[in-house]
């Protein structure tokens, strides 16, 4: 039960994007379409799970004073792996995410979980924590991507909901990212208040 809670907290209650406001750059930069948001979210989830796993395994081998650089190396390694694998097998996603793939390294969520959770907990709960937070992040990006794609071009995951000509293009462009996220956060705040 406890592990289940550990896993689900990332979705709404401690959602890294909507509630903790972390990882804003990829959140805004890659959510022009739902599929890009989902791809980015899953790539980040992979990095989170793997870096949490490794960090919790090696936490006792790393002296305290150099733990941050060591964690950064671990994270950067997995980011580069994701980058190369994506380039080989998902070239179109790789192209549309572009610069934001190497920038997973500086996503505060990843380093934050390694430092705040994995360096203090055992392997099992660290992996579950990574998966929960990562999927929460992916969930947030998919929601934002779907909203922007729907309002901007009348589609969700490339499935037409209403004719593209009625779309408000601004939501696919930069300003729409900020505005859509603003309203979604307002809604989530309201939901969380009701639950509490």
């Amino acid at each position: 039960m406890n592990q289940w809670k550990n896993f689900t907290k990332g979705f709404i209650k401690e959602n890294p994007v909507f509630v903790l406001l972390l990882g804003m750059c990829p959140t805004l930069g890659t959510t022009g379409t739902a599929i890009n948001g989902l791809g980015m979210g899953l790539a980040t989830t992979f990095v989170l799970v793997m870096s949490n796993l490794v960090v919790s395994l090696i936490k006792n081998l790393i002296p305290d004073k150099v733990r941050i650089p060591a964690f950064i190396v671990v994270i950067a390694t997995f980011v580069t792996i994701v980058e190369m694998v994506m380039q080989a097998y998902l070239p179109s996603l790789y192209e549309s995410l572009g610069l934001f793939i190497p920038l997973i390294v500086v996503n505060c969520i990843v380093l934050g979980r390694a430092e705040a959770f994995a360096s203090k907990n055992n392997v099992k709960s660290s992996v579950i924590d990574g998966a929960g937070i990562g999927l929460g992040f992916a969930f947030a990006l998919t929601i934002l991507g779907s909203v922007r794609e729907l309002l901007g071009s009348g589609k969700v995951f490339d499935i037409t909901i209403y004719p593209e000509n009625y779309g408000m293009l601004i939501f696919i462009l930069a300003p729409g990212a900020f505005i859509a996220l603003g309203y979604i956060i307002a809604v989530i705040n309201r939901l969380n208040k009701k639950n509490a």
Partner: peptide
């Protein structure tokens, strides 16, 4: 009330981006 804090800041940023 619902927009206080971060939401209104993001919407402001959106208009600035426009």
């Amino acid at each position: 009330k619902g927009l206080k804090g971060v939401p209104i800041a993001l919407i402001t940023a959106g208009i600035l981006a426009m």
